[in-house]
């Protein structure tokens, strides 16, 4: 487990990073927390010829409560976001999902933007970004653009950044008044990659009906997917046991699931249905779930 040879760059400013990316493009990878990238390099599954560390760019290390959402800079560590008071109060789904990301030592180092850019099919944060329609802020030496989450995630380990761009920040919209959220997943063991998982936020009207549901599901081969049909079906309904079960069934029929040696496709599909159902029951009952976490 020795990586293939690579050049190492550690600019101290965003401009410096963008300059490196302009020069090296496809051949370069950004090193943020390195919790996924470094093992893959050690296995020689990734062999970038230039590694551009952003760890010395202080300007990217921020968590900002802006008017229209919580903005995490490219160097915002997962542990810091998980314990940020604004995140806890106003972005509960993000915080719930972060409990499931790696172990504490991974979250100390790992970044929110890094996990998003890595786009692992079984990573929690892409599901949250999709469910909440987060804004991905891409930067290059020629300027900035905002990419909606739905357009950012292309496939497994694939995003829509151009070779000269980096994910400079992500903006998660605040949870609307009257909303409750839930992130649940289940794996063969109680820590590490899940077999399937669900990110859900439901906004309830004063009549107790679901005004708006936001739901993304992860389950294998491909990147997490937004379950739009389920959201439409739930809008305006009372979320009771029957509705939750039906929503689970519907969602399971919509998503792509993988069959592999961790779990066959039939199991994953069934699990998606159960997790969606349970997430809905949990938000409908107002129960606060806290994942066991290490």
């Amino acid at each position: 487990m020795k990586p293939a040879p690579f050049e190492f760059r550690a600019p101290v400013s965003l401009d410096g990073v963008l300059e490196e990316m302009r020069e090296h493009g496809e051949a370069a990878r950004i090193l943020a927390g390195g919790q996924s990238l470094v093992p893959l390099m050690n296995l020689r599954m990734l062999q970038p010829s230039v590694l551009v560390s952003i760890n010395h760019c202080k300007e990217l290390s921020y968590i900002r409560a802006e008017e229209d959402g919580l903005v995490c800079g490219a160097l915002a560590r997962q542990w810091d976001v998980e314990h940020d008071q604004v995140a806890i109060q106003r972005c509960p789904l993000l915080v719930q999902a972060l409990h499931h990301v790696g172990a504490r030592s991974n979250r100390n180092r790992g970044t929110v933007c890094g996990s998003l850019a890595h786009a692992d099919p079984l990573a929690e944060l892409p599901a949250v970004a999709l469910a909440l329609d987060a804004d991905m802020i891409a930067a290059s030496s020629t300027g900035r653009r905002v990419v909606p989450a739905r357009e950012f995630f292309v496939g497994a380990l694939e995003n829509s950044l151009r070779p000269d761009e980096i994910l400079e920040a992500v903006r998660f919209p605040y949870a609307p008044t009257g909303s409750r959220s839930c992130f649940i997943e289940l794996g063969n063991r109680n820590h590490g990659f899940a077999i399937a998982g669900v990110a859900l936020e439901v906004t309830f009207g004063e009549d107790g009906r679901c005004r708006r549901a936001r739901l993304a599901v992860m389950g294998g081969e491909n990147i997490a997917k937004r379950a739009s049909d389920t959201e439409v079906a739930l809008a305006g309904s009372i979320i009771d046991e029957a509705a939750a079960r039906e929503a689970g069934r519907l969602t399971a029929s919509l998503v792509d699931v993988a069959g592999d040696f961790h779990a066959d496709a039939a199991y994953r599909r069934e699990l998606v249905a159960v997790l969606v159902e349970r997430a809905l029951i949990q938000v409908a009952s107002g129960a606060a779930g806290r994942a066991r976490s290490i």
Binding site: R189, H191, R292
Partner: peptide, 14 residues
């Protein structure tokens, strides 16, 4: 599964 991501061994929570 010749790696510890895919060869699952129990961890503290198990």
């Amino acid at each position: 599964n010749a790696n510890l991501l895919d060869y699952l061994m129990p961890m503290a929570l198990d």
